[in-house]
Design a protein around this nucleic acid. Structure first.
Lengths: 402, 402
DNA sequence: CTATTTACGTCAACCGTTGACTTAAAACGT
DNA sequence: ACGTTTTAAGTCAACGGTTGACGTAAATAG
């Protein structure tokens, strides 16, 4: 997010880069032979040999003895990654629970635990204590085998995070400007770096990675419709952070300059029309238990209850407006609708279709593909795994020799 | 804009990177000694020696014999770049004229020529012919001395450009989807690569570079208010292109989802309220000669003529809405208002101030600094120079030995 | 059974940085 | 006046990394 002052490069950087290239190439087309890696990466055979040896020495890659006939010459010796070599740790904070999870490099869940709690919103000490215990438990589980490498654990936070990892605000946890990382790190049995990341951003990462490696969007936005509306922009799979790391938030896109004042200070924000809280309020449903009210909302919509339909009509027009903004201003490939939006999509779709139709004649470039999120509640934790996996794939040299 | 499939790295890349680091460090703090470069870049003295020798061999750097006392030890030997070593070429296309320009590496204008013409809008052949002649003249002038290096000439185009350099549309030139580069390249006396770039983007680059090297915005947006509203986003000085290279365009940000249909297909776009054409139409002034009408508009505003004030009130609210969107969605450091906006700023300012005040209590992160463009009509050509200069600074190894 | 084809490993040459050391040239202290 | 201190800049062996040419391995085709 924040570019460091440009630093000198050394030969070792070249090695790291190419090693990452080889591992990524393998991970994307597993299993495959060295010769295929050579073809895909453009590296010469000598280098591929060196790199695969190096990766094998770090326990990340194995030769599955299997040879394979098919063509004419010497059979190819297939390589595979070793999922067991790495375990990723994620702890997800939410209003009602703390969830811990350990996965292997392939994403298989090896351990999972949920701590349901009735902690009052805003009780930081209690939250940190519970999160700390869960982290300790997850880390201990992950590290019970000394032969596995464990990248920095990810703490999934439902709230705005600055690039320096301080929380700006979390409605769900009842937090204002807070430094969660310091007390959390201090409380760990064995101190280590923690990666604090936003729920929505990790959800976006899941959706991004759901596309096959050769068909991934260059510029993708993820619209996370929950009580409030959040969002994320991914450029070639990297978070676009902006000046403070808060970019991508689409909940406060203005859709009506004449609209009412929003809590953020601006007027007519998307949040005021598409946020679940806003919709429920319009329809006259209680907002304390959004999950239950959502069910009731959908019922009423299916019965074509006028107030509900009107609220979703407004929501749809607001979403179309925001989509028009995002598509033209950030030139997107793909917009993914997440959170409760897939559930409400049938009533939102007509407005999006209208926009697409109107634009297709004049500015088809500004019509990104629209997709619904494939992963539900699991998305953020999957994203945490993908993030940790990314750390390993980006710099395999950080994984020690076995 | 479009990331290439990741390519292997070699030792030579390291050299290029560090050579660029050294040259940039020197260019940003000219004149300075090798020891200062060492301190700023983190490179060791041996490498700095090698690099400065290399840069000197390419004629980009000179030792200005001057030694300077001051401290205690051996006097520092100051280095300077050699502006004469490089000449940049830019040709700017506009509705009424074609302007050519040659500058040195320091931005000094060495040659300039304007070809006023009455070409009918949309006459591509005529436009290409005139632009080609101007390019030939400028290139010939730039290259009359065989000891200078001339990077790819920049063609400044007032219109949307894809990342593959095809024009999507240019209202000013009366063009639709057009490939300008191919016919233009073919017409050159000696064929060479041309860089086609958008007027507004280059203007943004000028404004970006106007900040001292250590105080540059990380995420900056440039709002170019002309007949229509254009825009650009710069991330650490690089254009943010998005999926097709069209990102940054803020003219079609939705500010009123209930607003009238815009030419782009969406509703209530910023363009419809803040574009000069839109404003003039509202006020009832002719739009054929925007420059003259702008003067009349300002007169009326100064006399507090009600219709004019009302139009600018609407424009100001629209701009505030778009600003709220841009600031929260792309998390900006700085917004620069260009084109005619500085002229109209007194009447727009109150609405921006209101937004800033309302946000400062709740979401101060979303209050970017707002500045007026410092460079007027010259901005795009200055930007073209900065772009060409950037090519040299980014990879000095492309400049041959003298 | 030999030729051909494809897969993979080996190694000298090359490029680039580092870090320790040397040389250069001034100012300070006595 | 002269040696000491301090800072600037160049030199070079060692090291890490890639390339490209060549050699070896192991299958199939005829």
């Amino acid at each position: 997010m924040n570019r460091m002052p440009p630093s000198p490069a050394v030969s070792a950087d070249v090695g790291r880069h190419n090693m990452s290239l080889v591992l990524r190439s393998l991970a994307d087309h597993e299993p495959c032979a060295r010769s295929e890696i050579r073809a895909r990466t453009g590296l010469v055979s000598g280098t591929v040999t060196t790199m695969t040896e190096e990766l094998a020495a770090r326990g990340l890659v194995q030769e599955t003895g299997s040879v394979s006939g098919g063509g004419r010459g010497r059979p190819r010796r297939l390589l595979r990654t070793v999922p067991q070599r790495v375990r990723t740790v994620a702890v997800q904070l939410s209003s009602g629970s703390v969830m811990g999870e350990v996965r292997d490099l392939a994403g298989q869940v090896l351990w999972a635990k949920t701590d349901e709690h009735g902690t009052a919103a805003g009780d930081i000490d209690e939250l940190v204590a519970r999160a700390g215990r869960m982290l300790d438990a997850a880390i201990e589980t992950a590290e019970d085998d000394p032969r596995v490498h464990v990248p920095a654990p990810v703490v999934v936070v439902p709230g705005l995070l600055r690039s320096d990892a301080t929380v700006v605000a979390s409605l769900e946890l009842g937090l204002g400007q807070t430094d969660l990382r310091t007390p959390l790190t201090r409380r760990l049995r064995r101190p280590r770096d923690l990666a604090l990341m936003n729920t929505g951003r990790l959800g976006a990462l899941s959706e991004y990675a759901a596309h096959p490696p050769d068909a991934r969007p260059h510029a993708m936005a993820y619209v996370n419709g929950l009580e409030g509306v959040g969002g994320t922009v991914l450029l070639d799979g990297d978070f676009y952070g902006g000046a403070h790391g808060l970019a991508g938030e689409c909940g406060h896109i203005t859709v009506d300059m004449n609209g009412p004042r929003c809590g953020c200070g601006a007027r007519g924000c998307l949040d005021l029309y598409l946020g679940l809280t806003a919709i429920l309020t319009r329809v006259g449903l209680p907002t304390e238990d959004p999950a239950r009210s959502l069910g009731e909302l959908v019922d009423r919509l299916e019965r074509a209850e006028p107030t509900a339909c009107e609220a979703l009509d407004t929501a749809g027009r607001a979403l179309a407006g925001a989509m028009a903004t995002m598509a033209s201003y950030t030139d997107l490939d793909l917009v993914v609708l997440g959170g409760v939006l897939p559930r409400l999509f049938p009533w939102l779709e007509p407005h999006l279709d209208e926009l697409v139709t109107a634009r297709s004649r004049v500015t088809p470039e500004f019509n990104p593909k629209v997709a619904l999120a494939r992963y539900g509640k699991e998305a953020p934790r999957r994203g945490a795994w993908l993030h940790s996996r990314g750390l390993v794939l980006d710099d395999p040299s950080r994984v020690p020799y076995v």
